[in-house]
Each structure stands twice: as structure tokens, then as C-alpha cells.
Deep mutational scan, measured.
Amino acid sequence: KFGRVHERAEGPAKILAIGTATPFHWVDQSSYPDYYFRVTNSDHLVDLKEKFRRICNRTMISKRHMFLTEEILQKNPNLCSHNEPSFDVRQDILVSEIPKLGKEAVLMAIDEWAQPKSKITHLVFCTRSGVDMPGADYQLIKLLGLSPSVQRVMMYQQGCFAGGTMLRLAKDLAENNKGARVLVVCAESSAIGFRGPSEDHPDNLIAQALFGDGAAALIIGSDPKMGLERPIFEIVTTAQTFVPNGDCHLALHLREMGLTFHCTKDVPPTIAKNVESCLIKAFEPLGISDWNSIFWILHPGGNAIVDQVESTLGLEPNKLQATRNILREYGNLSSACVLFILDEIRKKSGREGLKTSGDGLDLGVLLSFGPGLTIETVVLR
């Protein structure tokens, strides 16, 4: 008597548009150690500064975009301390800036989509910054002038794996609601975790050397309108798992001094060791076991992770080039990073006149991972 209210779509979910945005301000990685130790009044920690310089040199990052300028840091000195309470200051900045950054990426996506924004039916927003109620999803709806009846899902504090999570959720929403057009937004800022150095917490140096700011937005829907919408990728399958006891290797915690970062040297080999089982589960039903026969979007948690995944799986050097390019130009953008790589690989395919948006290949994989050593596996066509 009370059956399904919403009719299912006929076809699989497809990515119809991609937009990205970054803050205008950026830092050069080669000179960042001098800048970082100067603005945090830590130049007296000579040995720690040299250690940080070595870490920065190993990241293979060229530059990173950041909202925090020297002027902002001078006005808010607690942000430059390692342990002073600064959460309220971070909140005041990020509750406002995260939706604005997301808006810039959304406008780029809508411009490519070339359809009225009134056709957006759902919003899925993800960030690890600016936790608030009502959330960044609500603020973004107002900034864009979208209908208050847009169906919203707000996900805070997920971390680097969440780019894949957003695709998984959007696929379910698009395929189970005929005519749905799902706006996916990942907006991230390193301002939540920026803090001064400490000899007692070397993990913090890794975070300060890796993370950048950026937002990515996608429009996802099934059954694209012929002649009006141009699909870029099809989302074939999605899956999530985590490595048992992985939280002892990688975890982040909200504290009075901001978001703290805990990471062990076992993260790269542990991820590399567990990736292939995810690939087998995803691609065995499709008859694929040659990992060089697919295109790759791999989250660059750090250069060591990229190198070890490449080595463990025997990947050809060009397979992870898009990942390395984004890491070099932006650093680790947390949940937004794989979506930047997705954009990079389709643009490169277009520039080179390849037959598909995925490096000329039919199928590919998007792998994202993060806290708890959670792994998201997304098969794309």
C-alpha cells in the first residue's frame, strides 16, 4: 500500500561536471621552513628547523595554497603556538571561509554543467574544518541561492578518505532518486591544524609540511539529458573497508589547540600492503587483474605512500603521474585531493585527444585512504 515514493533511475550514476578552487595566497615549499619557523617564533630550535627542512624536501611538493597569511597569523598569535588554546579563533575563521571556498568550486562546476542551478536536488558536503550547526551545507545553500528544499547531508571530521566516500553516497542518491542531481562538495583548510613546532611531537612537522587548502565540487546524476549534459565518468562500483587496528597508525583529534595529527612510519607500507586486496575485490568480477590496464586516481597521502603503492603493485611510472602532479602543485588537500586528481586526469586526456576521459582507457580506480586506515575503492568508467 505504501510502496516506494521515489522512482529509481534507469542507469548508473555519472559525473557530469567538476570544479575546483583554492585560496589566492600560496607558499613556496622550498622556502617554507624559514617562513614557518619565523612566523611561529621558533628560529631558536635550530636542529628541529633543519629536520623540518629535510621533511619538506622529501615531500616532492612545490607549492601549497593556504588561507592563513602572515597578517592573519600576526593578529592571532595563539595559532602560532604549539599548545595555546586557539580553537575559537580557528572556528571564527573557518565557519565562514569553508563555505565560501566551496562556493567557488561549485560555481566552476555549474559553469561546466551549463544547467540551471535550480535542477540541483541534493547536496553532500564534506570538511574536517569549521564544525558548526547549522553547518557548512546550510551556509553554502544560502551563498548559492539554492532552494531550501535541496536535500542535504553534512559530513564533518572524515579525513583524507572522504573523497571516495562522497562518490559512494552520491551514487546511491542519484541511482535511487530518478532525476536527482547531486552536488558533491569537499572543502578543506590546513588552518584547522596549523600550529608551531615542538621537539616532543615530530608528527606535527609532517602535517605542517604536507597539507594545503582547496575545494572540489562535482555534479552527479543518472540518465543524463542527451544534448544537454556531457558525462565525464561513470561510477561503476564503490566499497569501503578499514585495516584492523589501523587507528594506531593514523589518527587526528580535535583539541583546544586545533586538530592534532598522529602518524607513524608504518602508514605507507601498511596501505601499500592492503591496497591489492581492495583492487581484487573490485575488479575480479570485471575480469581485470592487470593493474597497468586501468587508469589511476590515488590519494597522495605523501610521497612515500605513492612510491610504495607503485612499487608493491608493479605500476608503470606514468600510472600515478596525475597523483604526483597534484601533490606537487597543491600538497595533500585531504578529502578534496582525489577529486582534484580526477579533474587533472580528464583534462590531460582532453588535451592529448585521447579516446576516453581516463587516459584513453575504459576502466579505472579511485583509491582514497585516511584516519583509521580507512580505504575507499571506486571503480570508474
Rank of each mutant, 00 (worst) to 15 (best):
M60R: 14
T377S: 08
S31F: 12
G360P: 06
S357F: 10
S42L: 09
V309H: 00
R351P: 00
K355R: 09
A13R: 03
L339M: 12
M133L: 13
I345P: 06
F295R: 04
V106R: 04
K14C: 10
D307I: 01
E7Y: 00
V243E: 07
G314A: 04
A272V: 09
A114W: 00
L123R: 08
L363S: 13
K103I: 03
F233S: 11
I305P: 07
V95I: 04
E284R: 02
S289N: 03
G358S: 10
D266E: 01
L320F: 11
E284T: 13
P85R: 06
D28Q: 00
L373S: 15
D28E: 04
H299V: 08
V131M: 12
I15D: 02
A109E: 01
D34S: 10
N245G: 09
D111A: 12
I375E: 11
K265M: 06
L146V: 06
L286Y: 11
G372H: 14
C337V: 09
S86A: 12
S368E: 13
L254P: 13
K103R: 11
V275A: 05
L68Q: 15
I120G: 04
Y35P: 04
Y36F: 03
V131T: 09
P23L: 04
D247S: 10
P269C: 15
A251K: 03
F52P: 11
L333Y: 01
I341M: 12
E112Q: 12
I297W: 08
F67N: 01
S289M: 06
T312N: 07
N303V: 07
T260V: 08
T323D: 00
S277Q: 13
R230C: 00
K348Q: 00
N332L: 01
N76L: 07
P12L: 01
I55S: 01
K319W: 04
F340L: 10
L123M: 07
S311V: 05
L252M: 12
G314R: 07
I72T: 07
S311C: 11
I61F: 05
H122Y: 04
Y330S: 06
G350K: 11
T238L: 11
V378D: 15
S349A: 05
D362E: 02
L16T: 01
Y32D: 08
T20D: 09
A336P: 10
F340S: 08
N325Q: 14
Q29I: 10
S62G: 13
T323V: 07
S368W: 02
I271K: 10
V46T: 13
I375P: 14
L315I: 07
N274G: 10
E329P: 11
F67G: 10
G331L: 00
L123G: 04
L380P: 15
V338Y: 00
D359W: 02
P300Q: 04
F233A: 07
C56N: 06
P23E: 09
G246T: 11
S277L: 05
I61P: 07
L259S: 15
E84H: 11
P12C: 06
L361T: 08
N245R: 10
A17P: 02
R4S: 14
E97Q: 15
G102Q: 02
S86P: 07
N292T: 05
G358Q: 06
A21Q: 05
N303P: 13
C248W: 05
L250Y: 03
I280D: 14
V5F: 05
W26S: 08
A304C: 06
L228W: 03
P99H: 15
G258K: 00
H122W: 06
T40A: 08
F283V: 03
L373M: 15
P23H: 09
K1W: 04
S293Y: 10
R54Y: 00
L339P: 11
K51F: 01
I280M: 09
L101Y: 08
C278G: 10
L354H: 15
T241E: 12
A17S: 05
I18H: 15
L45I: 02
T356L: 03
L298I: 10
F233W: 03
P300T: 03
F369W: 13
A9H: 01
L254R: 14
P134H: 03
L250G: 06
Y32C: 08
F24Q: 06
T40H: 00
L320R: 02
M66L: 03
I18D: 00
T260D: 15
Q74C: 00
E7F: 02
R255K: 14
I141W: 08
L73I: 15
T323P: 05
P134W: 08
L367I: 01
L313K: 04
L342M: 09
S311F: 06
P23C: 07
Q115I: 01
T121C: 09
H249V: 08
Q115D: 01
G353E: 11
R328S: 05
D47I: 00
W26A: 09
T22N: 11
E310L: 07
V267C: 12
R128E: 05
A304H: 11
V379Y: 05
T59C: 08
K273T: 05
P300E: 04
N76W: 07
E276L: 04
Q308L: 09
N78S: 00
H122M: 08
V306M: 13
H122V: 02
L45R: 06
F87L: 12
D28G: 03
A251F: 13
R64F: 02
H253M: 11
E71T: 08
P269N: 09
N57H: 05
K75R: 12
K347L: 00
F261A: 14
K14M: 12
K100A: 10
R53Y: 14
M60E: 01
L363V: 03
D343E: 02
V338E: 13
P33H: 01
L298T: 00
L140V: 02
R38L: 01
I326D: 00
L313G: 05
H6A: 05
V275C: 01
D290C: 03
G145W: 00
I345K: 00
D290Q: 02
I110A: 05
H44A: 04
N76Y: 08
Y330L: 01
F37S: 12
S129N: 10
S149P: 07
L333F: 02
V89M: 01
V309N: 00
G135W: 07
P300G: 03
L354T: 05
I326Y: 00
R53D: 02
G358V: 04
T374C: 13
F37A: 14
K63N: 09
I93M: 11
D92W: 04
C278F: 09
D47V: 03
T40C: 03
I297A: 13
T356R: 03
S129P: 14
K49L: 06
E276M: 12
E316V: 04
H25G: 10
P269Y: 13
G364W: 00
I288K: 10
P231T: 13
C263M: 14
V309L: 11
R381G: 03
G370T: 12
E352T: 12
S62K: 14
T377N: 06
L380C: 13
G246M: 04
T22L: 05
L250F: 13
E112P: 04
E70D: 05
F261T: 13
S149T: 06
C337W: 11
F52N: 01
T374V: 05
C80R: 12
P317W: 03
G19H: 05
C278A: 10
G246L: 08
G372V: 10
Y32A: 07
P244M: 01
G19A: 03
H65Q: 04
T20Y: 12
Q115T: 07
G11D: 10
F261M: 12
I345M: 10
G11Q: 09
M133W: 07
